[in-house]
Design a protein around this nucleic acid. Structure first.
Length: 472
RNA sequence: GGCGCUGUAGCCAAGUGGUAAGGCAGAGGUUUGCAAAACCUCCACCACCGGUUCGAGUCCGGUCAGCGCCUCCA
């Protein structure tokens, strides 16, 4: 708990246990979620690349927590349920599955364990009972609260002191609490809460923070390695998780990692501000790999600004990399045997630069730069002539391993033409053949017209030594 | 008010005290029927003012600007 970059040492050699705070499933996920998921997915992939076995636990919050601390506050899932005329669990499942679809599209590896809060009510109640026994929590009016005054360490993660905090409106909603800053472990479900469970304190539902303490300890064990999440969860969510676990006598996460926020026009993208773009919306307009590339082009701890220009830039940059890889693969078909020692050394240099960057707090922008270095050297060499098969294979493998396996780019070969039907492919062949005939007859007006028309619908035609090529 | 972060080229974005990675955009050239792609070349008074140092974008102090958390938020 040093609030700085430190070397990582796993609890169990060769193994890494990671817990990631997942979304509350009550509406479509937005780009901010994508940023977080991609950031930690890359971290997980990097550990795997360096030979660690990773157990990756990412939870789903499907209990509707309160909009605020007042007892009559509506919970988000219930609110949505009323709006969509659905059962609360129907809402949770609907957005759970849409979240899963988004993650799959973004090429996020599936979690080893994907626990849901509603499936771990027993564990949460057990943890609350431990806290009451140890005198760090108290029951009041059918609810249970954590007594922050009883736990001096409260605030150590976010570096704050209780007495410095602004109290403001929270005084007004103190309710049953002894101290305005105490937070709920269990809430009385009076007032018609739809999601409710029996407990030693009556019918109710768990507080927001307790699920993560209970589930991470259950699946990763005491003193597990890494806990991650968005920087906006550092306080109070993660602070509360630590207090709950440690006050109950359980060693908690040893390393904390927080991804920084996405901004639009300099302002944080957030649900409450309404200035967000859903992942589904972005994916309808952009190649998911371009989205990933954009996210990975800035460091996870930096604030990242989003704009149309950023997407345009990412699109062109990503194409440069994937085209380079494609060219290598094309050249492989008639490559001469042998290798090029000088080029091999350059490839090795870039591979090492990439790995060094990833070892240094997962510096993906630097790693991406190494990929561009690899691409540049290969393009240069290929422009100058033929390159030996062994060297081409080495470069291709580097692209696949680093860009593909570690950064998660190049999924599905990275081909932008994958979704093209057989019909489109056949039509394009005919059009290109017709255009070639015009060109051979020097009827350039006609051939250019075909090319221009295709360009208007977003199809680019390129004439190469090996014949015409097209892409979208 | 408390805690914390950021300010690097037109845009995005790295940067461990030793004369500023990378990408996009732009300019010139090679190639091309013309393009596209690719290749070659070019493109930074590191917000401002002091200080420490042989040497500071990097450390310290201050100023200005912006942002985040302290309430649900990735």
């Amino acid at each position: 708990m040093q609030r700085q970059k430190v070397p990582f040492t796993p609890t169990t050699p060769g193994h890494v246990g990671m817990y990631l705070c997942g979304p509350t499933v009550y509406s479509d996920a937005h780009l901010g979620h994508a940023r977080k998921e991609v950031a930690f997915d890359v971290i997980r992939r990097a550990f795997m690349h360096f030979g660690y076995a990773v157990r990756y636990v990412a939870n789903i919050t499907d209990v509707g927590h309160l909009q605020d601390d007042s007892d009559d506050g509506e919970d988000k899932i219930a609110k949505r349920a009323a709006l969509e005329r659905l059962e609360p669990m129907e809402v949770a499942d609907k957005y759970f599955w849409s979240f899963m679809d988004d993650m799959a599209a973004l090429n996020i590896l599936r979690p080893s364990i994907n626990p849901r809060a509603t499936g771990h009510i027993t564990e949460q109640i057990a943890l609350i009972e431990e806290l009451i026994e140890r005198g760090h929590a108290y029951e009041s009016g059918g609810s249970v609260y954590f007594d922050v005054r009883s736990w001096p360490d409260y605030g150590k993660l976010s570096g704050r002191k209780l007495d410095d905090q602004e109290e403001g409106t929270r005084e007004a909603v103190r309710g049953d609490k002894h101290d305005a800053r105490d937070f709920a472990l269990w809430k009385n479900a009076e007032g018609g809460h739809l999601m409710r469970w029996p407990s030693p304190w009556g019918i109710g539902f768990p507080g927001w923070h307790i699920e993560c303490s209970a589930m991470s300890l259950k699946y990763l064990g005491e003193g597990f390695d890494i806990h991650g999440g968005g920087l906006d969860l550092e306080f109070p969510h993660h602070e509360a998780e630590i207090a709950q676990a440690e006050a109950a006598g359980h060693a908690f996460a040893r390393y904390w990692m927080h991804n920084n926020m996405l901004t639009i026009g300099g302002e944080k993208m957030s649900k409450s501000k309404g200035n967000f773009t859903t992942i589904a919306d972005v994916l309808s307009r952009h190649d998911p790999m371009v989205v990933r590339f954009l996210l990975v082009s800035s460091h996870y701890r930096s604030i990242t600004e989003f704009s149309d220009a950023a997407f345009e830039s990412a699109k062109n940059g990503y194409r440069r990399l994937s085209e380079s890889l494609h060219e290598i693969e094309r050249r492989l078909s008639d490559a001469p045997d042998g290798e090029d020692a000088t080029l091999d050394r350059k490839i090795e240099t870039h591979v090492q630069a990439f790995e060094a960057a990833m070892r240094d707090d997962f510096n993906t922008p630097k790693a991406v730069a190494a990929l561009f270095g690899l691409s540049g050297d290969m393009n240069s060499a290929l422009a100058a002539g033929k390159v030996g098969r062994a060297t081409l294979e080495r470069a291709r493998d580097a692209f696949h391993t680093l860009g593909g396996d570690v950064l998660g780019l190049f999924a599905g070969g990275g081909a932008a033409q994958e979704d093209n039907s057989e019909v489109v492919g056949t039509l394009m062949q005919l059009v290109l053949k017709a255009r070639q005939n015009y060109r051979l007859n020097k009827q350039y007006a006609e051939s250019d017209e075909l090319r221009d028309t295709l360009a208007q619908v977003g199809v680019t035609v390129e004439d190469t030594k090996d014949g015409p090529r097209w892409r979208r």
